[in-house]
């Protein structure tokens, strides 16, 4: 059996899955209990759980696609472990490629790793390169939060504008990339073009329609689900557009 996908590796991955789920369940139960004490309605809590699950499905399948990308070289278990804890595609690919190149091997993660020492080195580099947040957060988080707390109590009106502005700054980065971000010339669909702008526009339009509908028909449930529905609907429309439009127009990327 391939050492990258043997029983030991799968058991290791299952252990990590158990750890992550236990931690999430622990925080989930605490937060639900607190929400009830704060008087947040049961329906709001339930809607938060269901809509967050729906919202997660498509991006999670996108993460599985990353596991597949990395699996050509590393097998599927190590990428599975890595993307379950502090995972992120750009980091994982860079770390794995650098570790492979340290051995003077070319081709990066596209070529299957057959040498156990190289494989273990990759695991070390991927791990050590991404542990920083786990060290920083226990040290910094309380201080950062207390500074924010002071700002909030000093000026509540500004704190409210400030938090909206911070979110908008984050959203702006993704909107701008969909409009003008450059991708790899060899990869189809990673740069700004017809499909990225279409996804953005479809999603905005669907969201506005769902919000109007929810208000007009007084459908409270739709308010909670308008975001995941808009996202999934926009993805469906993009798929359709890619089928209907001529290939050279559908996959046109003005920034490569």
């Amino acid at each position: 059996m391939d050492f990258k996908e043997d029983k030991f590796m799968i058991a290791l991955a299952m252990g990590i899955v158990l750890l992550v789920i236990s931690q999430a369940v622990f925080f989930l139960i605490r937060a639900i209990k607190r929400a009830k004490k704060l008087g947040i309605e049961k329906a709001t809590i339930k809607n938060t759980i269901v809509s967050s699950s729906l919202f997660t499905i498509a991006p999670a399948i996108g993460i599985v696609a990353t596991v597949l990308t990395l699996s050509a070289g590393l097998g599927y278990v190590l990428p599975w472990i890595r993307l379950t804890v502090i995972g992120n595609i750009s980091y994982e690919v860079t770390a794995a490629t650098n570790a492979i190149e340290a051995y003077g091997l070319s081709g990066g993660i596209a070529n299957e790793i057959t040498n156990p020492e190289v494989f273990a080195t990759i695991a070390w580099v991927m791990t050590l390169g991404s542990i920083m947040p786990l060290i920083l957060i226990p040290i910094l988080l309380k201080k950062v939060q207390s500074k924010i707390g002071k700002t909030v109590s000093k000026n509540n009106a500004w704190a409210s504008v400030m938090s909206a502005a911070a979110f908008i700054g984050l959203i702006a980065a993704f909107v701008a990339r969909a409009i003008a971000g450059k991708g790899e010339a060899s990869i189809r669909g990673d740069g700004a073009g017809i499909l990225s702008v279409a996804a953005l526009v479809f999603s905005v339009v669907l969201m506005l329609i769902f919000q109007k509908l929810a208000n007009a028909k007084k459908w409270k449930w739709l308010e909670s689900f308008s975001m995941p529905f808009s996202m999934i609907g926009a993805m469906g429309l993009v798929m359709l557009l890619a089928q209907v439009l001529p290939q050279n127009i559908a996959f046109l990327e003005w920034r490569g």
Partner: peptide, 23 residues
């Protein structure tokens, strides 16, 4: 046929958020 949809998952996701915040 699904690939274009998954390639554009991020703009689709942030479009919905953007609409809500822009309004």
């Amino acid at each position: 046929a699904f690939a274009p949809a998954f390639q554009q998952v991020t703009p689709a996701l942030f479009g919905a958020l953007c609409a809500s915040y822009l309004a």
